[in-house]
């Protein structure tokens, strides 16, 4: 149990819990918006994850990484809700995969215009899962293993995804690197 806040929650401390809720609300909102613009689904998912967390608070001592626990729950619930919603509204098949959207990737605009265009193009070749793996690892303080588990893929596959995505980037950038570093 690495998170003291979790300990407070196990003891029923509402003030600590409020802080945790609000903190994760921001993070899950940010994460969830990469999948859907429907903020109601995000809100509902956050409510469901935390209601479940609260109900189980006395059994949380087995949770090694609260961050990981919350992220994997949230992703699971959100994707389920998006699926249900899409099925109801657009009659989409339930097997449709709902992915992290690449439109939210930003390329640093300190780069030259030429370089920015190249990086944009490279990003377009990445899959949603490849981007999501990067997002989670770089921004959400999760380990490789945890990301793999959240995305429901083996650790090996995570390495592959990372390698593939960055390889794709590298190929797009070969010319640039030649220019820049030679």
């Amino acid at each position: 149990m690495d998170n003291p806040v979790f300990k407070h929650i196990m003891n029923g401390d509402i003030e600590a819990y409020s802080g945790l809720y609000k903190e994760y609300y921001k993070r899950f909102y940010n994460y969830g918006r990469k999948f859907t613009t429907n903020t109601y689904l995000i809100e509902d998912s956050i409510q469901e994850v935390f209601l479940d967390l609260w109900k189980r608070r006395e059994k949380l001592s087995h949770v090694d990484s609260p961050n990981f626990y919350l992220y994997s729950s949230f992703r699971y619930v959100l994707i389920r809700k998006i699926r249900q919603h899409e099925k109801m509204v657009f009659n989409q098949s339930a097997d449709e995969d709902y992915e992290f959207s690449g439109e939210h990737v930003i390329v640093n605009n300190d780069l030259s215009e030429e370089l920015q265009i190249k990086l944009q193009k490279a990003i377009k070749t990445l899959t949603g899962r490849q981007l999501e793996a990067i997002f989670l690892m770089y921004y959400e303080d999760l380990s490789y293993k945890e990301v793999a588990s959240i995305l429901n893929i083996s650790v090996k596959a995570t390495y592959k995804i990372m390698a593939r995505s960055l390889l794709a980037l590298k190929e797009k950038f070969t010319i640039f690197f030649v220019l820049f570093f030679v």
Binding site: K34, Y139, L166
Partner: peptide, 13 residues
Amino acid sequence: LYLENLSFVTHTP
């Protein structure tokens, strides 16, 4: 350089 020039839009509630 790859890592340093890639980021994501932040959506703030």
